[in-house]
């Protein structure tokens, strides 16, 4: 699909004038009004709350008392909390495992399906099925086959002497299971983005490469990869940003336990706010997550900025 494709190079002024309707393509007041509903939702539900969180993170908030300005005190407390550091480290591990695991799996599946494949439509449908599954069901499914001692996969691994994935007692095993689960749920997204990108690789160039004696790897490395690189990067950034939010998989498996060993940032935030009523600490965590997300998104945002103003 080439929808939304204003030309990628800066259009020449003459060409731009030619594309304009009589009366110009500058919007009028009524057109700005059409933007209002969407923008009000975004400002009211996301932007203002995010800014307010930054302000909250500088306050000491407790029930029944007015907030008191404490400067960076909450951040100092956060950095002094070893549970926070464990949550941050766990998040780092899980996010990287999930993002790269998914990217490799998604790329492998996309290459597999876009080559010779009978019943391609049905195969794709079956591969994206996990996208429709909610996290609670997904946790139930994976717990079922990996229930300690009695789940069939754990049972089978015990039988052949591999030892089992003891996620309910061993924090490392719990994180492994959470990562697996997350990969299972989100691979369809990565797979589809890469599959769509592979469709745009011109067949003639690949054939030309083969005629010139390129082997499968050379053809992938020098023809396919450059074409799908933008999609690969988009998938990478998007999944980094969304994977950092990981909450349900951990919460539904372990609630961050045992002994807060398996918490991730979102679980730490949720506990601080809604279990311990430490809103200052929770807000500091939240604002840290905002900054982290923006930092990871920065290259993507910069590209979007350039693209949008080039056509402005």
């Amino acid at each position: 699909m080439t929808a939304g494709a204003a030309p990628l190079t800066a259009a020449r002024p003459a060409a731009r004038r030619a594309r304009r309707l009589p009366g110009g393509t500058r919007p009028g007041a009524s057109h700005y009004a059409l933007l209002a509903p969407a923008q009000i939702l975004l400002v009211g539900i996301i932007l203002l709350p995010a800014i307010y969180v930054a302000w909250m993170s500088l306050q000491k908030v407790s029930f029944g008392a007015d907030p008191v300005f404490v400067g960076l005190e909450n951040y100092r407390a956060l950095l002094a909390d070893s549970v926070f550091w464990r949550a941050a480290w766990n998040t780092f591990l899980v996010v990287n495992a999930v993002v790269y695991g998914e990217l490799l799996l998604g790329l492998g599946l996309a290459l597999l399906v876009s080559g010779w494949m009978p019943y391609r439509k049905i195969v794709i449908a079956l591969l994206i099925a996990p996208y429709a599954i909610n996290e609670v069901s997904a946790v139930a499914m994976w717990r079922f086959v990996l229930e300690p001692d009695i789940g069939m996969v754990n049972w089978a691994m015990l039988q052949i002497g591999l030892g089992q994935l003891d996620w309910s007692a061993d924090p490392a095993d719990a994180l492994v299971l959470a990562a697996l689960l997350s990969i299972w749920i989100h691979t369809p997204f990565t797979f589809l983005i890469l599959y769509a990108a592979l469709q745009s690789v011109p067949q003639e160039i690949k054939e030309a490469a083969t005629v010139d004696g390129a082997n499968a790897w050379q053809s992938f490395r020098h023809v396919t990869l450059p074409f799908i690189l933008p999609a690969l990067l988009v998938a990478l950034v998007f999944r980094y940003i969304t994977a950092m939010r990981i909450f349900s998989e951990i919460w539904l498996l372990t609630e961050g336990g045992p002994a807060r060993m398996t918490e991730v940032l979102a679980v730490y935030l949720y506990r601080a706010a809604f279990r311990y009523h430490e809103f200052g600490l929770a807000s500091a965590t939240a604002f840290a997550m905002v900054l982290l997300s923006l930092a990871v998104a920065a290259p993507y945002l910069y590209a979007a900025w350039l693209k949008m103003f080039r056509h402005a």
């Binding site: 995010a50 307010y52 604002f287 997300s293 945002l301």
Partner: peptide, 18 residues
Amino acid sequence: FFMVLVRMLPPIVVTLPL
């Protein structure tokens, strides 16, 4: 650009003030 930008913010953040 603002629309793209706010997409990057983690949903759990807004639960605190909202």
